[in-house]
Computed example of a mutant assay.
Amino acid sequence: MDLTAEIVPYQSIGGIKIKSILSENKELIEGNHFKYEMYNYFFIKYYLDHLLEIHVNVLSGEVFKISAFEGYKGSLQGVQIGTILSEDRKAEMEFDDFEEIFIYNGATIETELVLNPDNNKWEDKVTCISVYTKELE
C-alpha cells in the first residue's frame, strides 16, 4: 500500500482499486492493522489506523468505496487532506447540500470549517477524500 499515491476518481486510493475483489488485496490487509465492522448484512467497512476506510460488498467481495483521512499524503488533482479549499477551487466543484460534501471529478471531499487567524475568515479544510464506483452516483 502506498499512502502517497495519487487519488484517482472511480479507480483507486493508496493502490487499492475500486471494484477489485477483496482477496486480491489480501496482502495489503493482512500486512497492516486493519479492523473491520459489518454495518449491515451486505457491507463491511475495513479501517486502517484512521488513515483509510475500505467498503466492501459482502456478496460480491468487491471494493465499492475507499476513503482517505488525515495522514494520507496523496492528492486528488492537487487537493490533499488538510488543504484549505480556495473559492476558485470550490467554484469547480458541486456542493451536495443534503450530504454536506463537495463532489469533484468523480470523488467526494468532506470538509470542516476552520477559522483562519490571518484574515479572521471561516474556511473549508479538507478532512476526507473518497472514491467510489460510478454506480453509486
Results as ranks from 00 to 15, higher is better:
C128P: 08
L48T: 04
I54S: 02
V58P: 04
M1R: 08
A107C: 00
A5M: 12
Q80L: 13
E100T: 13
T127D: 06
S86H: 10
N105G: 10
G78V: 10
N25W: 11
G71I: 15
S12G: 05
G71C: 11
D49F: 01
K17L: 12
F34K: 02
L113P: 03
E137V: 04
N120H: 09
I44Y: 13
T133E: 13
I18G: 00
Q11H: 14
E92F: 12
L115K: 07
V63F: 12
F102K: 00
F102Q: 02
T127Y: 03
E6Q: 15
T111F: 01
E37M: 15
K19M: 11
Y46L: 14
N116W: 10
T133G: 09
L51N: 01
L3E: 06
I101C: 13
Y46C: 08
N32F: 02
G31C: 07
N120A: 08
T133Q: 06
G31S: 15
L59S: 13
G106H: 03
I29R: 05
E123N: 02
T127R: 10
I81C: 03
Y72E: 01
K45A: 07
K134P: 07
L22M: 13
Y46E: 07
V63W: 06
G14H: 04
I81A: 00
V79D: 04
D88L: 15
N32Y: 06
F95R: 13
I18K: 00
Y132T: 00
I103M: 07
E87V: 09
Y46R: 02
V8M: 04
